[in-house]
């Protein structure tokens, strides 16, 4: 698996997409990396939403997004099952498909390429997992992380940011893999 090219999408809920920062709720973060013949997906998402957050939504939103991490995993699984291995990593893979459907109140950001550098104590999968969690914490706290530089997997955010996450914003992390189109011939 390469960490030189990793696709990133944040997932938010925003009641009015034309006023995207008003009442925005960070629901999750998904990273997509390319292994030899498959895609590896690392997900971090809120375990559940609080009552005040749910009250921002309509009934459909409340019922489907009450457990965001589960919902995102299920959405991703559906995209992968539908594609049946026909996704092209070079074109943004599964995240591209997710972002095309979810562009309204539920918003999957169009995937952007990032580069991750693993720590010596990590393998690539661990680095991907660690980066996903840290990027999501930054997103939840509304803090900017420069995505143009290479992200050092153990040091994307300062240590004290984790302590600033309210207990109600518990995070679940998981990973998925799926077959993918062979690499384009160069």
């Amino acid at each position: 698996m390469s960490l030189d090219k990793v696709w990133l999408s944040f997932v938010d809920y925003r009641p009015d997409p034309a006023t995207p920062e008003k009442d925005r709720i960070a629901l999750g973060c998904i990273l997509e990396a390319r292994a030899r013949r498959s895609g590896l997906f690392s997900l971090a998402g809120r375990v559940s939403l609080t009552e005040p957050e749910l009250m921002i939504m309509d009934r459909i939103g409340r019922e489907t997004l009450v457990h965001p991490a589960d919902f995102l995993r299920q959405q991703l699984r559906e995209v992968l099952d539908r594609a049946g291995g026909a996704l092209s990593f070079e074109q943004g893979g599964a995240l591209r498909q997710l972002s095309q459907v979810h562009r309204w109140s539920l918003y999957v950001m169009p995937p952007r390429l990032i580069r991750i550098e693993r720590h010596l104590s990590q393998n690539n999968t661990q680095a991907l997992y660690s980066a996903t969690g840290q990027l999501f914490i930054a997103r939840m706290l509304g803090r900017d992380v420069s995505l143009d530089r290479t992200l050092r997997a153990k040091q994307i955010i300062p240590e004290d940011w984790r302590a600033q996450v309210p207990p109600a914003w518990q995070i679940a992390q998981s990973s998925l893999s799926a077959p993918m189109e062979p690499r384009a011939q160069r």
Binding site: P15, P17, I60, G61, T64, W104
Partner: peptide, 20 residues
């Protein structure tokens, strides 16, 4: 014009299709 806030595409609402 955005017809209403908190809009869900059918792709998302379809999981509640028996009710909707």
């Amino acid at each position: 014009a955005l017809a209403f806030p908190r809009a869900n595409p059918w792709a998302m609402a379809a999981r509640l299709s028996s009710r909707l």
